[in-house]
Computed example of a mutant assay.
Amino acid sequence: MSETSTSVIKSANRSAVMTAAHCVRRGSSPVNTHIAMVFVSAYSKGKMPYGAFAVRTAVTPRNWENDSTDDLSTLVVDADKSGRKLTDVVGGQDIAFNRPVGGTISAFGYSATRPQLGEELLHCVGTAKEKSGVQAIPCDMSGGSSGGPWLADFHATTGKGTLVSVNSALDSLTPTEMQGEVLGATAKKVYDRAQHS
Rank of each mutant, 00 (worst) to 15 (best):
K81M: 10
S15M: 07
S73T: 05
R14E: 04
D67P: 03
D67Y: 08
F39Y: 12
E65D: 14
T69A: 14
M48N: 00
V38D: 07
A16D: 02
V17W: 08
D80R: 04
A54E: 15
A20M: 01
S44L: 15
T69Q: 14
A36W: 02
P61K: 10
C23D: 07
K45P: 13
V59N: 07
D80M: 11
T60Y: 03
A54M: 15
S44T: 09
I35N: 14
T57V: 05
S41R: 04
A36V: 02
P30F: 02
N13I: 00
R25C: 07
K85V: 05
T33F: 15
V17H: 08
N32C: 15
K45D: 14
G51D: 02
V76F: 05
D70A: 12
F39S: 03
K81F: 15
W64Q: 05
N32Q: 06
N13K: 00
V55T: 13
R84Y: 07
A42W: 06
A20F: 03
S28L: 01
T74A: 12
A20T: 00
T57P: 06
K81I: 08
V76G: 10
A54K: 15
R62V: 14
V40L: 11
S73P: 00
R26M: 06
N66K: 12
S28H: 08
V55A: 15
W64K: 10
M48P: 03
T60C: 09
R26S: 15
T60R: 06
T57E: 12
D78T: 10
G51Y: 01
A58I: 09
R56Y: 06
Y50R: 08
K10M: 06
I9L: 09
T87F: 01
A36H: 09
R62L: 06
I35V: 08
H34F: 09
D70G: 09
F39L: 07
D70M: 14
A58W: 01
A12Y: 11
M48D: 04
P30D: 00
T33S: 08
K10R: 05
R14F: 02
M37G: 05
L86M: 01
S29P: 13
K10Y: 00
T19M: 06
W64D: 04
R14P: 00
S11E: 07
T19R: 03
N32R: 13
M48A: 13
V55R: 11
R56K: 11
V38W: 12
N63F: 12
R26V: 13
V38P: 06
